[in-house]
Design a protein around this nucleic acid. Sequence first.
DNA 1: ATACATACC
DNA 2: TACTGGTATGTAT
Length: 364
Amino acid sequence: MATVRISAAAAPSSFSTLFTHEKAGMSNVDKEKIKRIVYEMSKDSAHFKEQERRDQRVTEHINACRERHQRIGADELKSHEQRADRLLVELDGHRNLERTWACVDMDAFFAACEALEDPSLRGDVVFAVGGTSMISTASYAARRYGVRSAMPGFIAQRLCREAGVSLRFVPVDFPKYLKFAELARTAFRLFDPHFIAASCDEAFLDLTDYCAHHAISGAEAATRLRHQVLEATRGLTCSVGIASSRMLAKIASDVNKPNGQYVVPAEREAIVSFIGPMPLRKIPGIGRVTERVLREVLGAETCAELLAKRAALCALFTARVAREHLSALLGIGGEGPPPLQREGEPSQKGVSQERTFEPTGAPL
DNA sequence: ATACATACC
DNA sequence: TACTGGTATGTAT
């Protein structure tokens, strides 16, 4: 029986990026081959049909948006543009560059924990934490073959087999990861006792006071932080982003992953040129669906491109959503204290800290 | 008020 | 063979 070769173009739009979009450690992967294998192994499953149904609904929504977009007259567009520009000026005017935030992201966290406790996993071992149904985290060696988080294990296994290597599975062990997370957190506390734990492998630290007290730069603090994490965990590496907002720090933490750091200077120009070329998917809150809408309706792929389409953006989205996107495009979001509870604070409500809340509804 | 969709790890 | 599970948030009905 001849194998039917399915071209990438035949696959629905979601499959063009599913499991192949840019991710740390995956720059040299043969994306076309991965797409083909993932598609071949998925196309007959119930999960695939459900996915297709959802994609179809998104497509209909996109078509409706396109029609509305077509119908916007020149005058209307002009007034939306003026509204957008007023908003941008206002947002830019309130830009807060005072604080130094760090986003710490542990590298391949689950896999790194496993390798730390099992010497046979060290080095360039192709393994994944998870099982044949679902993978949580892939080792960096496995990522070279296209294996990644949230990929079904049996597909990952096939990807490796096609490349002539075998994929080793290590079962998920949450208590182990919580133990290492706690060790990393002892390091975080040295820099910010009120750090925000975003998840078990990610945290935000306000380094402003630490930098002032030690008279050091954000870059130097990041280097010390990475060193302390490595020491506290006896071997886990992390990546750190430094910026004046949590949103920028998070994006920055991805730039030199793994085991690296990146600083976005706290200057308007530096921020704007950092965020401008970023693909929209990098903005927290813009996921697979919103990315599709923005690309297929407005033709925008990057932040700068969407900024150029600000008038249509304001016309098509609710004021709240448009505002949120516009601030993100300026690199604004998460400068002040978070609305959530922070580590080390008493767990009671109504106690006002000396910090103030963000003036407008643009928290991150 | 409730259900549904989207996003994140 | 086999496509997470839990939380948060926002929008539509």
